[in-house]
Computed example of a mutant assay.
Amino acid sequence: MAAASTDPDVVSTLGEIRQRLGKFDVRKKDIAFTKPEGLVSASVLVPLFIEDGNVKVLLTTRAKHLRTHAGLVAFPGGHMDEDDQSVISTALREAEEEIGLSAQDVDVLTVLPPAFVRPNKFVSLVVGLIPSDFVPNVNKEEVSKVFSLPLKRFLKNDYLTKEVKLGDFEFRVFFFYDIVDGEKIETWGFTAVYCMFVGLALCTSDLSIEVQKGEIVNKDNLFSTQHSENFFLKLKQTFAKL
Rank of each mutant, 00 (worst) to 15 (best):
2 A>M: 07
3 A>H: 11
9 D>C: 07
10 V>E: 03
12 S>H: 15
15 G>R: 11
15 G>N: 15
18 R>G: 01
19 Q>D: 15
20 R>F: 00
22 G>I: 04
22 G>A: 08
23 K>Y: 02
26 V>L: 07
28 K>S: 13
32 A>W: 02
33 F>A: 03
33 F>Y: 15
34 T>K: 12
38 G>E: 08
40 V>Q: 14
47 P>G: 00
48 L>C: 07
48 L>Y: 03
50 I>P: 02
50 I>R: 10
50 I>S: 07
51 E>H: 10
52 D>N: 13
55 V>I: 12
56 K>I: 01
65 H>P: 03
68 T>Y: 14
69 H>R: 15
69 H>D: 09
70 A>G: 05
70 A>Q: 10
74 A>Y: 14
74 A>K: 11
75 F>A: 01
79 H>Q: 08
79 H>E: 12
85 Q>E: 13
86 S>A: 03
86 S>L: 10
90 T>I: 07
93 R>W: 03
95 A>F: 04
96 E>F: 05
96 E>I: 05
97 E>F: 06
99 I>P: 00
100 G>C: 08
101 L>A: 05
103 A>H: 09
105 D>W: 03
108 V>S: 08
109 L>P: 04
111 V>F: 00
112 L>Q: 02
113 P>W: 06
113 P>H: 04
115 A>C: 06
118 R>S: 14
118 R>N: 07
119 P>M: 09
120 N>A: 13
123 V>E: 10
125 L>M: 12
127 V>L: 05
131 P>Q: 06
133 D>C: 04
135 V>I: 14
137 N>C: 08
139 N>S: 09
139 N>C: 06
142 E>I: 09
145 K>V: 01
147 F>K: 06
149 L>G: 07
149 L>M: 14
152 K>H: 14
155 L>N: 10
157 N>H: 11
158 D>M: 07
160 L>F: 11
160 L>Q: 15
160 L>A: 12
161 T>M: 13
161 T>E: 08
162 K>P: 00
166 L>A: 11
166 L>H: 10
167 G>C: 08
170 E>K: 15
171 F>H: 07
172 R>A: 11
172 R>G: 09
173 V>I: 10
174 F>A: 07
176 F>V: 02
180 V>E: 04
181 D>Y: 08
183 E>Y: 02
184 K>M: 11
189 G>M: 07
191 T>W: 00
191 T>C: 12
192 A>E: 04
193 V>I: 15
196 M>D: 01
198 V>E: 00
200 L>Y: 00
201 A>W: 00
201 A>H: 04
201 A>T: 09
209 I>K: 09
209 I>W: 12
210 E>V: 04
210 E>Q: 12
210 E>D: 11
215 E>S: 06
217 V>M: 05
220 D>W: 10
221 N>F: 05
229 E>N: 13
230 N>Y: 06
231 F>S: 02
231 F>L: 08
234 K>S: 13
234 K>G: 06
235 L>E: 10
235 L>N: 10
237 Q>G: 01
240 A>R: 14
240 A>C: 02
242 L>V: 09
